[in-house]
């Protein structure tokens, strides 16, 4: 057993790449659910919009990196928000939930379809679109940084990720202290009340869906850049719920909640992941119980179990208070 690797990996989970991808996605969900009460179960599709917006712009359409950023961060997520929001935001909350989860499935089918291979690269996805990003890398690719946790390229992704994450945090913090955020919270509490006071609830919900979606797209884009590939497998339906667990764990409607949640979640996930792998590799785990390929499945089980337990026993999260926001309400 290599305890050094286990500890190192857990620590990487706290601050590393997946933490950044999912903090961003969960910040978006916080905008949706925590502040506006929207049930978005398709955050993975917004993430995919970011990843595919960039990669399709560069690889399929032959545009440059900057157009890719525009497509991935702004245009794709906005279109997606319109498609999912226009039919559902007038209706009860479950309809958005159904449509967003259906959109995830549609994404999976379309992105994997061989008939669209020319556009999406089907199951293999797209690669070689992030060179421009790494051109700016000031770190030495051969060296390790930050207590030896990241090699040069990773360090660059993580550094830019932290900066973007800070900007997103600042945006959420500022808007939630503004009249705009007040309207969102009012809609979360009672849409009709907001409407009776002359607030266009539909439009505010749409804005929330769009902006939270853009945060998700940023997360997805980082995932594509960090792994240097945009693959359907990285944005399947269940990916959304990693962000949900992070959100509820940290506490919805807290500006820093998603970040704390994502850090703790990935700390735990990385820890169990490496621990199990080590157990399997070193023969401590009987093969009848688990082999190497099944380790990855355990993390999904933990996500499912985490959702159940949090929703039942600690809906306000670790840091949240019942007064401000709790899942177990309404």
């Amino acid at each position: 057993m290599d305890w050094g690797a286990i500890i190192q990996n857990s620590f990487r989970g706290f601050i590393g790449e997946p933490f950044i991808y999912f903090s961003l996605a969960a910040m978006g969900l916080n905008m949706h659910y925590g502040y506006t009460g929207l049930l978005n179960f398709g955050q993975a599709v917004f993430m995919a919009a970011g990843a595919y917006g960039l990669s399709m712009a560069v690889v399929t359409l032959g545009l440059n990196f900057w157009w890719g950023l525009l497509l991935g961060i702004v245009i794709f997520p906005l279109l997606l928000a319109l498609i999912m929001g226009v039919p559902t935001l007038r209706l009860r909350a479950d309809y958005l939930a159904i449509v967003t989860i259906a959109a995830s499935e549609m994404f999976r089918i379309i992105a994997r379809s061989p008939s669209l291979d020319r556009w999406t690269g089907s199951s293999d996805g797209l690669t070689a679109f992030a060179n421009r990003f790494y051109d700016f890398n000031p770190f030495d690719k051969q060296k390790r940084y930050f207590f030896g946790l990241f090699i040069g390229n990773q360090m660059w992704v993580v550094l830019v990720g932290w900066i973007v994450l800070s900007i997103v945090v600042l945006i959420v913090w500022m808007t939630m202290r503004s009249p705009w955020g007040r309207v969102l919270r009012a809609i979360r509490e009672d849409e009709d009340a907001a409407r009776s006071l002359g607030k266009n609830a539909y439009w505010f919900k749409m804005q929330s869906l769009m902006i939270g979606g853009m945060f998700g797209a940023l997360g997805g884009m980082f995932r594509a850049i960090g792994t240097q590939s945009a693959q359907p497998q990285n944005f399947i339906t269940d990916v959304t719920f990693f962000a949900w667990v992070a959100l509820i764990l940290g506490g919805a409607a807290k500006v820093g909640g998603p970040i704390a949640g994502a850090a703790i979640l990935y700390g735990i996930l990385n820890f169990t992941d490496v621990l199990l792998r080590q157990l399997v590799e070193n023969g401590y785990m009987p093969e009848a119980i688990m082999d190497g390929t099944q380790v990855g499945q355990v993390r999904f089980m933990m996500i499912g179990l985490g959702l159940i337990l949090l929703a039942i026993y600690r809906p306000q999260g670790i840091f949240g208070t019942k007064e401000e926001m709790a899942l177990d309400d309404r």
Binding site: D190, S196, G198
Partner: peptide, 23 residues
């Protein structure tokens, strides 16, 4: 839309009070 009616100058309250309890 209902919100526009409010902006026209007609505001309503509700039978089951809709105070926004977490604000």
């Amino acid at each position: 839309s209902a919100y526009k009616v409010a902006n026209l100058g007609m505001v309503r309250t509700f039978q089951l009070t809709k105070s926004l309890s977490k604000m």
